[in-house]
Simulated scan of single mutants.
Amino acid sequence: MSDILFLAHRVPYPPDRGDKIRGFNVLKFLAARKRVHLVAFADDRRDMGSDSGLTDHTSIIWRGKSRAVAALQAMLTNRPVSLAAFDDDAVRAAVSTVLTTHDIDTIYVFSSQMAQYVPTDTTARVVMDFVDMDSAKFAGYGRTQAGPMGWLMRREGRLLGTYEAKVAARADASLFVSDAEAALFRDQTGAERVFAIENGIDTDTFDPDASFVPIDLPPRTIVFTGQMDYRPNVEAVTWFADEILPLVRKSYPDAGFAIVGRAPTDAVKALGKRPGILVTGEVTDVRGWLAAAAAIVAPLKLARGVQNKVLEAMAMARPIVASAPAAEGIDHADTIAVGETAEEIATQIIAILSDPDAARVRGMAARRQVMQRYGWDARLSPLTALLAQAIGPRAHRDAA
């Protein structure tokens, strides 16, 4: 039986942030069916030398290239910064070792930055898991930002979009996290063999009745969870603190806001100096914070694909208010409240705080929806058919 080579831009375990959650569950799904060899970057020293027990061979390479160096290399070579940042000879050597010492019939590429390591002459099946359309994200940044940084974002969106289209043309399957994201990619690139493989959620772990350490919060605390050096999350909590929370406090002056997640930027830390706003930094278990919240918010102005933070809150049976972009990729069956403007989001939060019983009923409905719709085995089951397909003729794999 031939093996799978899994390429990841970040070690996909422990599954404690959005991309690692998807990566880990895909890896687990594949490893239950075939022998898998992993080559991945690490950007957290705690991940160096870690082992999931799921793979036969693992190579973890430290990604220490600075953003400044990556940007300079990208400018000199007319490449997207995203590619230059992940260009590494040690990874290239590790990939070569696996391909020459093992019978690999499938290369699973997690995130477009890793597609540069797929050899042009490979006969293996190539499954490209883009997750989100990153070029659209950077193009969105470029439309809203002026000056040199806006120019850099527009450049990244343009070059990365061209690269994504080339990668899809030479892959046997291109995967995205939602039907909307897959449709956007098809529309903008004309690519074929594009499929949606949605994210799931571990509803046994994220269960209000599971065992976890409880957190004591004031009764009207509103909670946001996420990686707090990720630009859309930073923008979301800033918008909430500046414009939405003051509206809520007109009805409930004691309403608080807890920003829960690792690596808060200086801008996020500054929010924690305001009355009633708590910035936690990294926590060992987010479930206690979710369970203690009067409401969970996901006020992202820019969001791509499926938001794990929303699925986790739904699984924990919490009342949720999300922006339209944050809710777009999720089949929530109206179990979460959605708002477009600061006023609409504030109104939805006030309604939750005003009627805790109704909020509790809606939270339980959200959990039922997640259990019916978002189990990982069900979400990943289409991979079985993709991996079983015969490898047919494909475009020449020119270096992307």
Rank of each mutant, 00 (worst) to 15 (best):
Glu156Leu: 03
Ala165Met: 05
Asp172Glu: 12
Val213Tyr: 04
Asp179Cys: 03
Phe185Ile: 11
Gly147Pro: 14
Thr144Phe: 06
Thr122Phe: 06
Leu159Phe: 03
Val194Phe: 02
Trp151Ile: 05
Val177Asn: 13
Pro218Val: 11
Arg220Ser: 14
Met133Leu: 14
Leu217Cys: 04
Phe206Leu: 02
Tyr141Leu: 14
Ala139Lys: 09
Met153Ala: 15
Leu175Tyr: 12
Met133Asn: 15
Ile215Val: 15
Arg125Ser: 12
Leu160Cys: 11
Pro218Ser: 12
Asp129Ile: 07
Val109His: 00
Thr205Phe: 15
Ile201Glu: 14
Ala182Phe: 07
Lys137Ala: 04
Ser112Cys: 10
Leu184Met: 14
Arg155Phe: 11
Ala196Tyr: 11
Asp172Ile: 04
Val167Glu: 00
Tyr117Leu: 08
Arg186Cys: 13
Pro148Ile: 12
Ser112Leu: 08
Ala196Trp: 13
Asp134Tyr: 00
Arg220Trp: 04
Ile107Asn: 01
Ile107Gln: 01
Val131Gly: 04
Gly140Pro: 05
Phe195Val: 09
Phe110Arg: 00
Leu217Arg: 08
Met114Ile: 06
Gly147Asn: 13
Gly161Tyr: 02
Asn199Tyr: 09
Thr123Glu: 13
Gly161Glu: 11
Thr189Glu: 07
Asp187Thr: 15
Met149Asp: 11
Asp204Ser: 12
Val109Ile: 06
Ala124Ser: 15
Leu159Thr: 03
Ile107Trp: 01
Ala146Ser: 14
Tyr117Gly: 03
Phe130Ala: 01
Arg158Met: 11
Ala191Tyr: 05
Arg155His: 07
Phe138Cys: 03
Phe206Pro: 00
Glu164Ser: 03
Asp204Lys: 12
Thr162Lys: 15
Ser111Gly: 02
Thr205His: 14
Lys137Pro: 04
Arg143Pro: 02
Ile197Ser: 00
Phe110Thr: 00
Ala182Pro: 03
Pro214Leu: 05
Arg143His: 08
Gly190Cys: 09
Gln113Trp: 01
Glu192Ile: 06
Arg220Thr: 11
Glu156Phe: 08
Glu156Cys: 10
